[in-house]
Amino acid sequence: MVGQRRLRWWAALFLAPAVILTAVFFYYPMAYILWLSMHHWNGLSPVKPFTGLAEFRHLFQQPIFGLVIRNTVIFVVGTVVPSITIGLGLALLANRRLPFRSFLRGVSFAPYLVSFVSAGLAWVWMGSSGGLFDHLMGFLGFHPGNLVDNPSYALPYVIAMYTWKMAGYNMVLYLAGLQTIPREIYEAGAIDGLQDGWTQFRTITWPLLAESTFFVVIINLIFSFRAFSAIYVMTNGGPVNSTTTLVYYIWNLAFVQNSWGQAAAASALLLIVVLALTIGMVRYFTKESFRAS
């Protein structure tokens, strides 16, 4: 048998690649972002003077900053709530012994598989003037024209595309959760007179899915905060910045406007928001049931 001490050396060896890469590509950048947010830098200059909180102040003074925060909140809430609700609905449907249910699963999961670039392009076309949605809405006597070029419709439209893409993913997560609920519980419930579907869902299914829901909410929040490609491809953050969310704004500040200090400040803000989520994430992944099976 290998001795305790030697075993530690082995452990260190096994962990070295992952630890070093994680340190270099996650923790060092996080520290660097916080450092850079307190310095002025145009991305080119060799000097980065210390400016304290001035970059944050400049960021808050940007006339579009309020709009960016508003867009981000609308986008995150607007994508997370419906994609989870629809995902749950799909899971309940696909969990029944209905014909074509595997077809249903496959079809609703398919959007998750294609890239945001592909899906974004397809939706740009479907939302163009004379495109699919223009026609469909025409039946209702309403001609919205080009959806992504309209400041009132662009954000809801990007949200719709994003929901379409993510609902199937949530369905998979919920299906796994549903399969852990023993059938006997429903049968016992039926004895107690809980027969109608809604009551059954409210009193049995939903409470037993609480753990799944917790995870689904967190993972969806993470995904939504990250959404960049869809916005880049569909709207470039426009029109009139109506689809500029925080991550898009960070990119724009750094690479288009060369305001790396402000971009770092905006990144630091986002970092603080997601750190709050991290606590929940860590608690979930370290819970008892994951320790040993």
């Binding site: 950048p29 996080m30 997601v274």
Partner: peptide, 18 residues
């Protein structure tokens, strides 16, 4: 382990600049 799992939450856009 917590140190690893915590990285799952960090949006790449936040650490992309460094």
């Amino acid at each position: 382990f917590i140190g690893f799992v915590a990285t799952l939450i960090i949006p790449f856009q936040v650490i992309a600049l460094p």
